[in-house]
């Protein structure tokens, strides 16, 4: 019962959030000086007569007032219609669907890799606190926190694609292959470098949090007791350290979905990887408002889900909170 109530509460929060985000986004976009009709027609703008222009505006509903336009947009959103992309001349839903998978693959790979690596090296740093190993790991993390992700991407692109020729320069599918024939393997192959870039940067956050949390745990009385009981090193770590550290660490990692998405935008741009990130940049640069709005909303959901999962981990997996909640 409690779980149901919790989920309902969360869903209401998401709904309110999405309404607010959609309103703000729409407001911002409609204040923009970019003319959607001009963006749509492009270079042939000069050949369009005022009458034709009006016809287009009427077709898109641009002749109506902004509140009416917002209402229309929200109404069609509710029915699952995200509008038509001006840039790709196709329903936004179709444009996004394929890119969503690509981005999901990229971010998923990067997230897993960063999480695994971060927890491992963060643990090593904490177990060897204040030794040169720890200092090296921390130094590495602080260095990464200051590194522009897209620049790191450029370096990897230069090294692995241009010099070593191990990976393709751009495009998530080989040239000349119809997208339906692209195998999963091809996709993964093209996602490796951008995912690597993302995860190298993402490691720093998880690693530092893991280290801090584990150090905190290592100072707890039950660790001293475990040592007195003869547990040391790896045995101590897996029996008591890891168990107590892993939930908070994974939780923090989930809460970093926002940075992951932002990183993916840059990474996809560097590697010309056709995902949501590349699409939002194209949409923004070319005034493709329906596409832009849709991706903004998706990114909001994405961040929300990350925070939600982080919360769930804390609330429902920790026996203290789970069972404690049942009793009350």
């Amino acid at each position: 019962m409690q779980l149901v109530r919790y989920l309902i509460k969360r869903s209401i929060r998401l709904a309110i959030l999405l309404v607010a985000v959609s309103f703000l986004t729409f407001l911002l976009v409609s204040l923009s000086p970019i003319d959607p009709v001009r963006a749509y027609i492009g270079a042939e703008m000069l050949t369009v007569s005022p009458e034709q222009r009006e016809a287009i505006e009427a077709y898109w509903g641009l002749d109506q007032s902004k509140p009416v336009q917002y209402w229309q947009w929200v109404k069609s959103l509710a029915t699952g219609d995200l509008g038509t992309s001006l840039l790709y001349r196709a329903p936004v839903a179709d444009v996004i669907a394929d890119r969503f998978l690509s981005s999901f693959l990229l971010m998923g790979l990067a997230w897993l890799l960063a999480g695994l690596l971060g927890i491992v090296i963060g643990s090593v740093a904490a177990m060897r606190a204040n030794t040169w190993v720890d200092r090296m790991i921390r130094g590495y993390c602080y260095l990464l926190l200051s590194t522009p992700g897209f620049w790191l991407g450029l370096l990897l692109l230069m090294i692995f694609s241009v010099w070593l020729g191990l990976f393709p320069v751009g495009l998530s599918a080989p040239v000349g292959v119809v997208s339906s024939e692209v195998t999963v393997l091809d996709r993964v192959y093209h996602a490796i470098l951008p995912a690597l870039t993302l995860s190298i940067i993402g490691v720093a956050n998880v690693c530092l949090h893991t280290r801090e949390k584990l150090l905190d745990i290592l100072n707890q009385p039950f660790i001293l007791q475990a040592k007195a009981n003869g547990f040391t090193g790896m045995k101590l770590y897996f029996r008591h350290g890891f168990r107590n550290m892993v939930l908070p660490a994974v939780s923090v990692h989930f809460a970093s979905f926002g940075e992951l998405f932002g990183g993916a935008i840059l990474s996809e741009q560097v590697f010309s990887y056709p995902g949501l990130g590349e699409a939002i940049v194209e949409a923004g640069l070319n005034g493709d408002i329906p596409l832009l709005l849709a991706i903004v909303l998706i990114s909001a959901c994405f961040v929300f889900i990350g925070n939600f999962l982080a919360d769930v981990l804390y609330q429902w997996i920790d026996p203290r909170l789970r069972k404690g909640g049942d009793q009350s």
């Binding site: 998405f261 939002i280 909001a300 994405f302 961040v303």
Partner: peptide, 21 residues
């Protein structure tokens, strides 16, 4: 504060830059 943190940083930046040209 929560609202602004609910979008990826870069997405908000793209939106505002888009609005201001």
């Amino acid at each position: 504060v929560d609202l602004f943190l609910s979008l990826p940083h870069l997405v908000t930046l793209i939106l505002i830059s888009f609005t201001l040209g």
